[in-house]
Design a protein around this nucleic acid. Structure first.
Length: 278
DNA sequence: CAAATTTGACCCAA
DNA sequence: TTGGGTCAAATTTG
């Protein structure tokens, strides 16, 4: 596609998504049962917020803080658990509820995540990546699991656990309170400038997004970012499977299109000057 | 030098 | 016992 400028394209697409989300909201208010409506509204709120962020970021030429790191070659692990205050529950109960989102070509959701693990899952061709909110040290217990889709290499199944208490919800208490950031599948993220995933090691996700809008939760100063030592108080995560409902159809048919367009657009080789990383 | 990532080990639920 | 989630030392990069 050849549109005047990338910015114009994104702006237009995001605006479309915004309108679709608004539409969806109305739909939910009118047709869904109370609970679903409530949840749905939170979802749409998140979507709208994302649109706002993108639009705002683009129009004012937001600057992000591209953080990158390369992978190492290996690491000698000499674990010596001794007096380590391990998390009460080292492992999350299997099948624990989580919000799952399928993203195509992107995985940024406005939060800064720090990878803390990677694992090869049997049955899956691709490894699974474990991320934790960069502010977990401040008590934020949000985590997310990312796995490349087996069928669609370009898609990632992302599961979110816990909720952000790092303050990102300051402006929107609703989200922090009941909406596991998960749903906020922001389309922002050009991961690496179109390169995609390094089949061998590179983490597919990079917290590139970093506009000034993602306020406090991720300034450029993690302050005393501490390495290792997170206390997870995981437990609360609600299931928000976008599964079967007229709403879903709407999402896929209307919102999905515009959204994916943006995602693809951003994800496929367009280096956004606005999102920094020069 | 500090911050972030990598990666093998550890741990626990199924 | 195994698979999967987390930890933490080592390593890499800005």
């Amino acid at each position: 596609m050849a549109l005047s400028t990338p910015t114009a394209v994104v702006l237009e697409l995001m605006t479309m998504g915004q309108q679709s989300a608004a539409h969806l909201k109305e739909l939910l208010m009118a047709a869904s049962p109370p609970m679903a409506a409530e949840h749905g509204q939170a979802l749409t709120a998140g979507i709208l917020r994302c649109c706002d962020r993108v639009i705002a970021a683009i129009s004012k030429g937001a600057t992000g803080t591209g953080k990158k790191r390369k992978m190492a070659d290996r690491g000698g692990a000499a674990t010596c658990p001794g007096d380590l205050p391990l998390m009460s529950s080292k492992r999350r109960a299997r099948g624990a509820e989580a919000d799952r989102v399928l993203e195509t070509g992107t995985a940024a959701d406005g939060f800064i995540w720090r990878k803390y693990g990677q694992k090869d899952i049997n049955g899956s061709k691709h490894p699974r990546f474990y991320y934790r909110c960069a502010y977990s040290g401040e008590g934020c217990g949000a985590t997310r699991r990312v796995q490349q889709s087996r069928d669609e290499p370009a898609a990632f199944v992302i599961a979110y656990y816990g909720e952000h208490t790092c303050g990102d919800g300051a402006a929107d208490g609703a989200r922090a309170a009941m909406l596991p950031a998960a749903v906020v599948a922001s389309a922002l993220n050009a991961w690496g400038g179109g390169v995609g995933v390094d089949p061998n090691r590179g983490s597919p996700l990079r917290p590139l997004l970093h506009t000034n809008h993602t306020r406090h939760c991720h300034g450029e100063d993690p302050g005393e970012n501490s390495r290792g030592q997170w206390s997870s108080s995981s437990s609360s995560s609600s299931e928000a499977e976008l599964g079967t409902s007229p709403v879903l159809e709407f999402l896929e048919g209307g919102l999905g299109v515009g959204w994916e367009s943006v995602v693809n657009y951003l994800g496929v080789g367009w280096d956004l000057p606005q999102f920094d990383r020069a």
